[in-house]
């Protein structure tokens, strides 16, 4: 009997050791993702291709962002949306429309509304979290996505004021880019699915040039977010992140 207990204890310890050896810690993976993906600031020219139930629309925009808290977006086309600007500062969001010459603060339930009919909400726009600051992580498996070996990482929020209580990431083992993400509500319901494609090396980082967002509560084929140009760590004048910049 003693022999059997000793045998199974040794087996368990060996399996744990092997597991620990094969699967890196969740925190190490999140740190690696943050090191690769986040920057002091960035300027992005992008287009959003929204595949709705009645057809496809393309909206181009330019965004200046700094850290997690500041972002300024100006819509470039089509004509109806051209000149609309959005400013995120801290946990506040304003929008400016040249048609009405009004600067309006977006708050409350409006933050959960879709941005320009896409699968992204204002909350999604406002959130670009450093994962390691807001989530604790555990590696639960490995899988291959688009021919790239990935770790499957499950994240649980550690800060309460976050849009998604938990996330599941399939992150590229070498490039530290999450190639697929599933975002869940507190209830465990899957709210959004995000796929990151066309990963290329830009200014020494691996970065996706195309992202596909799918709001799982909406019918439709999702929204493609295509990066036409991205520059990291630029000189961005401070006045860009002010309300005065909205009316300029």
């Amino acid at each position: 009997m003693k022999f059997i207990i000793t045998f199974f204890t040794v087996l368990l310890l060996t399996a744990s050791a092997l597991y620990a050896e094969n699967y890196p810690s969740g925190k190490a993976i999140l740190d690696a993702i943050d090191r690769n993906m986040t920057s002091e600031n960035r300027i992005i020219v992008s287009k959003m291709v929204i595949h709705g139930r009645r057809g496809t629309r393309t909206i181009r925009s330019k965004t200046w962002s700094e850290g997690e808290t500041e972002a300024f977006t100006e819509y470039l086309s089509p004509a109806r949306e051209k000149g609309i600007k959005m400013l995120k500062s801290g946990d506040m969001l304003w929008t400016y429309s040249p048609n009405t010459d009004r600067t309006i603060r977006i708050s409350g339930h409006m933050l959960r509304q879709s941005v320009m009919g896409s699968d992204l909400s204002y909350e999604d726009m406002m959130e670009d979290p450093e994962l390691s600051r807001h989530y604790k992580a555990a590696v639960t498996g490995k899988e291959t996505i688009d021919g790239r070996p990935c770790w499957i990482v499950e994240l649980t929020a550690t800060t309460p004021a976050i849009a998604y209580q938990s996330r599941k990431l399939w992150t590229d083992r070498e490039r530290n880019v999450p190639l697929k993400q599933e975002l869940f509500a507190k209830s465990g319901k899957l709210l959004k699915r995000l796929e990151l494609k066309d990963v290329a090396q830009i200014e020494g980082r691996w970065f996706p040039k195309r992202m596909i967002f799918k709001d799982m509560l909406k019918k439709g084929k999702g929204t493609e977010f295509i990066i036409e140009n991205i520059r990291f760590d630029q000189e961005i004048p401070r006045h860009i992140f002010s309300k005065a910049a909205l009316r300029k």
Binding site: I50, G52, R54, R102, Q113, V115, M116, G117
Partner: peptide, 16 residues
């Protein structure tokens, strides 16, 4: 009074 809403195509719209 400015309406902040969504167009038929889902885009954000404001109208005085």
């Amino acid at each position: 009074a400015t309406l902040l809403g969504s167009t038929m195509y889902g885009a954000t719209t404001t109208y005085n």
